[in-house]
């Protein structure tokens, strides 16, 4: 679930970056978009730093 959220954010960032290279690019929107992406990148970094794995050792006895 956490991974999905981060992946969605990374996809959003990539789409935002692609906009700058696309024909849709508009200079008057660029500054606001750039600020949005910078904030999103920082947000992702924070999420990544906080992301922990859930490791569960199952109770099953495989010796039997």
């Amino acid at each position: 679930m956490a991974n999905k959220k981060i992946n969605a954010k990374i996809d959003e960032l990539k789409a935002g970056v692609d906009w700058f290279y696309s024909d849709d690019f508009e200079l008057d929107q660029a500054s606001a978009k750039y600020k949005e992406l910078t904030t999103l990148a920082k947000d992702i970094e924070k999420d990544l730093a906080e992301l922990k794995n859930e490791i569960k050792v199952i109770d099953e006895d495989f010796s039997k």
Partner: peptide
């Protein structure tokens, strides 16, 4: 394995079967 996995990435669900 756990050390490298935890250093590299998070948010994973890891189920461990303990065997010899």
């Amino acid at each position: 394995f756990c050390k490298i996995m935890n250093e590299r990435w998070g948010g994973l669900s890891v189920t461990v079967a303990h065997t010899q």
